[in-house]
Structure formats: structure tokens, C-alpha cells
Simulated scan of single mutants.
Amino acid sequence: MSDVPERVMPTPLRAVQILLLTLALAGIVSMLALSDSLTAYGQGEMMAPWLLVWVSAALCLTYDGSARGGVRTTTLVLMALVVLPTVTRLGEAASPGPFLDAAVRILLGVPVIVLLFLPESTAWFDRER
């Protein structure tokens, strides 16, 4: 056996990965479900935050490898850019579809931000390689 301790990703980061991948899947489902009822401008406006979610989901796949603090910071910034404008537009939703779309982004995005600020998460990205 090896004397080198095995490094296991903390549970909050596993939860972030699950949340981001679930959010990315929800974005695909939401875009497919609402695409018929929106104009081209509406589809583009709705797709912008989902693109940021999909980039964040791609970044979360690197958490268990050689990801450093920059990946964590980038994910935090992207998720803040998804959640904050969504909160301001939540009240403007005219129908249940866009309201549900915004609610999903908020309900799954806020825990991602909170979990990435936990000390265990910060320590994982600052660990020695």
C-alpha cells in the first residue's frame, strides 16, 4: 500500500457538481419546452443565462482534477451573473413558463454560490498538488 493519503473531494463540491449538472439539464428541457411560444428575440434573451449555466457545468467537471481557485472564482462569477438578473426579472414573468424557468435558475443557482463559499470548498481549491 502507498503511504500517500488519498484526496477525496469534499461533499459540498460533489453537491455543487450535481446541482450544476441538474441545472444544465433543466436548461435544455426549459429551452425545448418554451421555444415554441417565444419569438426569436425572446429565445435569445432566455438562452443567455443558460449559456452561462452550461459553461459553469463544464467547469464543474474539472473540480476533482487539477482545478485551482480560478475555476472556483469563475464559477462563482458566472452563477452570480445568472442568479442576480434572474431575481430582478422574476416579477416581470407574464406566464407560468418564464416564471418557472427563472425559479429553477434561482432555486438551484443560489445553493451553488453558497456551497462554493464554504471553507471546505475553498480549501479544496487551495490544496497542494
Rank of each mutant, 00 (worst) to 15 (best):
T11Q: 15
P12W: 08
R14T: 09
A15T: 15
I18N: 02
L19K: 15
L21M: 06
L21N: 06
L23T: 01
A24E: 08
L25P: 04
A26Y: 02
A26M: 14
G27A: 08
I28L: 15
S30P: 06
S30F: 01
L32F: 15
A33W: 06
A33R: 10
D36H: 14
D36R: 06
S37Q: 14
S37G: 09
L38D: 08
A40C: 08
Y41N: 11
Q43E: 13
Q43R: 15
G44K: 04
E45I: 06
P49W: 01
W50Q: 13
L51S: 05
L51F: 13
L52V: 03
L52F: 05
W54Q: 10
W54Y: 10
S56G: 08
S56L: 07
A58P: 04
L61A: 14
L61T: 13
L61Q: 08
T62K: 09
G69W: 06
V71H: 12
T73P: 01
T75D: 07
T75Y: 03
V77R: 14
V77T: 08
M79E: 05
M79F: 03
A80Y: 03
V82M: 09
V83W: 07
L84E: 05
L84G: 02
T86H: 05
R89K: 12
E92R: 02
A93I: 09
A93C: 09
A94G: 07
